[in-house]
Design a protein around this nucleic acid. Structure first.
Lengths: 338, 338
DNA sequence: ATTAGCACTCCCTGGCTTCGAGTGCTAATC
DNA sequence: GATTAGCACTCGAAGCCAGGGAGTGCTAAT
């Protein structure tokens, strides 16, 4: 595409993401292209329309970018904005003072992302099949019911009730927990799986199998911790002044089952993913952009962090700030689990 | 107040909570009072207006209840609706299959409340200064940093990082945790406080003091677990078709710090609390009703469970269903921690 | 005390007009 | 050949007006 077309597309996206009103040839001429006449720009706009990058809500209105237009912008024109020192300070301060508790930490991250991007945020706790077991405990509830407590890397506590076929006292449980912990501490999922195969039947093997179950459940996603925040920010955007739009989005956000599956699908392997409007397989998100990145203390342990907002979002700024939060959160976690 | 006035007020509230349109004398005459003329009803409506129970959005429109009108309705006219067997089944099924994990359990309860009331729900985990310690663990993170894990009644796990003045190995920590647990298991906050005073300085006392800190922090509220769900339901209500209204409410719901303070203040000692519109001290909730009840497995352990919705809510039905959920959740918890 | 009758109020709706920003096209210009 | 001035045209937004209707308050009759 010719440089001038690119420049005009970029200007349209800039202008529209800020003002939310369709942009016409005159404002472009007067604010961005002083050496071009509005007529010239009209021609270019018309071409960009033919190429599928821009659309007119109705004849004789200004242009707004199509999903494809945003896509081109994000892929080729966007500059990831540097983060102002004020915002950077806010981020580091909030992350520095975040609690070490895995759940609470994730909630703090979600709050920070929502605040600095002024959109809705979505965050999953760092996890991964390579995450290592840090601690484990067995607590007797009823004669045959036992609470299994797992502490994984990332200080994420998990609990699950196990039903034993016969009663075991707390003393025996404690002893059992010790033995298992000594055996498994520092192992990841596969390490534990290997250990299971080596054991003969008995309570120890039973517990190990349940631990594996639990880990797999978290990994396979149904139970992955996903929190969201900042829905209130979406209400400030004109595209959500109509309640129905927001309702669709909320249905996705509040159903964390859907959400975790969605995130898993979207983020794939890449480090930064921007999914624009109809690129979302999910019907309810067709007017939203989801921007995601990963964070975590190590390669073994990765969480997802991102925003959900109208396709008309300030991509450059948001990508920049997402990165800043991800970096801060990763560093903090590395300290925590050092 | 004369019986007939009460009947008419009741009819107005019924009609308006269902239709959301101001109700006039004719619909009342034709649907509720076949033996009265619309003119008679007009007189009564006018009187009810003078008494402050009804208001007209504009001259020559039907009446809608004032906050005071709803208050009278709730105090004297409302019949807590019995829960249909279908809904009752849904509730028991969802609660029965809820995970034993304290956090996840609360989230399930919030989901159920939101679903059966079709409003936004708010739920806190059962807690209380009389709750008993069930289990405790110390895990070494860094040489001098130790993760304290507490399991309280209600299967609510809490964690906090302790910084020790000197390094302690995991072996010593495990031994310490055992000793403390043997000492404190089954004690409540005051029991632990008493034990602290009896101990001389040392790592054991240090840990006990931190445990007390942690417990008090949860009780005093800043850290009380509060979850909400069902915001999407509010969007179906016409009073929130205007995004600004919803934004105010969301600011309260999403700021769980505010929320927990609010709940603590509202619920007081009573078992069922309905706070209507401007009765809310909180400015942002002036057009909302908050209905709360308590639940928990025992007198020692009480959580709050309730809804936030427009003042025009179906009070009878909602109160009935809140009660049903509270009962189911209480029973389930009693089983869990038996 | 109740009710029929009636004038009145005020919102809602739909149609109409005006206004203006923006367009596409054509012909002139550089 | 690209650019631009000029111009007719389109279409939504906003304002205005009239008609319809639901609902009221008041008065007089029952």
């Amino acid at each position: 595409m010719e440089p001038r077309k690119r420049a005009i597309l970029k200007a349209v996206v800039h202008e529209f993401t800020e003002s939310a009103i369709p942009v016409g040839s005159q404002v472009l001429a007067s604010r961005y292209f002083l050496n071009l006449s509005s007529a010239t720009i009209r021609n270019e706009l018309s071409n960009l329309g033919d190429l599928g990058y821009l659309i007119q809500p109705h004849t004789s209105s200004g242009r707004i970018p199509t999903d494809q237009g945003y896509r081109y912008f994000v892929d080729f024109l966007m500059e990831s904005a540097s983060v102002s020192s004020q915002v950077a300070e806010y981020i580091t301060e909030q992350i520095r003072t975040a609690p070490a508790d895995g759940q609470a930490f994730v909630e703090r991250v979600a709050m920070v992302v929502a605040t600095v991007t002024q959109n809705a945020s979505v965050v999953t706790a760092p996890h991964g099949s390579r995450a290592r077991l840090k601690h484990l405990d067995l607590v007797s509830l009823e004669p045959q019911a036992v609470l299994l407590i797992l502490l994984m890397e990332g200080n994420l506590l998990r609990q699950q009730v196990l039903e034993f076929s016969q009663a075991i006292g707390q003393g025996a449980l404690t002893e059992l927990a010790h033995r298992i912990l000594a055996d498994l501490s520092g192992r990841d999922r596969d390490g534990i799986a290997k250990r299971v195969t080596e054991l003969s039947a008995g309570p120890e093997r039973e517990v190990l199998e349940r631990i594996l179950d639990l880990l797999d459940k978290f990994e396979q996603g149904a139970e992955t911790l996903v929190v969201h925040d900042g829905v209130r920010n979406l209400l400030k955007q004109p595209e959500f002044s109509d309640a129905n739009r927001l309702q669709e989005v909320l249905e996705i956000l509040e159903e964390s089952r859907h959400l975790s599956a969605l995130l898993r699908e979207l983020i794939g392997e890449s480090d930064l993913q921007v999914v624009i409007g109809s690129e979302n397989g999910t019907e309810q998100l067709r007017s939203c952009t989801v921007a995601l990145t990963t964070y975590g203390p190590s390669g073994r342990l990765k969480g997802t962090l991102g925003v959900v907002g109208p396709t008309r979002m300030q991509y450059g700024q948001i990508v920049g700030r997402l990165g800043a939060v991800a970096r801060a959160a990763s560093e903090r976690m590395a300290e925590m689990s050092a």
